[in-house]
Design a protein around this nucleic acid. Structure first.
Lengths: 115, 115
DNA sequence: GCAACAGTTTGACGCTCGTCAAACACTATG
DNA sequence: CATAGTGTTTGACGAGCGTCAAACTGTTGC
């Protein structure tokens, strides 16, 4: 039997652009996106994501928003959940968008308003 | 003397990615973006923007959000205001982002969840 | 000057959002 | 079975958002 399952998420053609932009229009979720940009799977622990200042239930809420928007996928394995970016799905649905975002976001961290 | 002026807007280096995504994460403002994608100047009248169902003060509010996020610029000429996209500024700050958005948004209108 | 015009501002309303805390499920381990 | 670990769900709270209506500012034109 399959040892792991995935949490519910929209099918690729059902990913809505405005919903994705709304999901990414929050500083915490943008930081999560950058964490996931390495293509690897990440646990949900706030300390693994540079979010020690946030309650675990808050992080769980943000990850749900990203998943329901179609940005991430969550694999359930035992008592752990592994979250990763739906890179190919997003590239299929919105070509160039993810690349532009992942280029722009770290660049802004060095040269932008917050620097 | 200059016959027209511009409403306050952030300088190009001060345009914040998360703020832009937040501004665009609303269906009304996404529609405005698509209207402005032709590069031309547009008036603020709801009927010129496919927003007859919205009050003019609501449209004014959305245009303020877009302008303060750095997405649009507003030129004041007499009793009219002409709004247009800050395309080169956005391309400078976030290369490829606007192209990806303007490619993705209309495509979704034909093949996406709403179709 | 006065009325019409284009758009903004203010105030109000309901709804959503981000956050925390506590309680809850489920899994792994003794 | 009991306990600890990982993460979710629920409820609460304040803050912000989208909308409308009305009042307001400034401009054009009679």
């Amino acid at each position: 039997m399959p040892e792991d399952e995935r949490l519910p998420q929209p099918a690729t053609p059902d990913i809505d652009l405005v919903t994705v932009l709304h999901a990414l229009g929050d500083p915490v979720r943008m930081r999560l996106l950058l964490s996931y940009a390495d293509g690897a799977e990440h646990s949900c622990a706030p300390r693994d994501l540079g979010l020690e200042h946030l309650h675990k239930s808050t992080v769980s809420h943000h990850m749900r928003v990203l998943r329901e928007a179609g940005v991430t996928t969550t694999r359930v394995a035992g008592r752990n959940r592994f979250v990763s970016l739906r890179r190919t799905d997003l590239d299929t649905r919105f070509p160039g968008l993810l690349d532009a975002l992942l280029t722009a976001a770290p660049q802004q961290a060095r040269t932008g308003p917050g620097a």
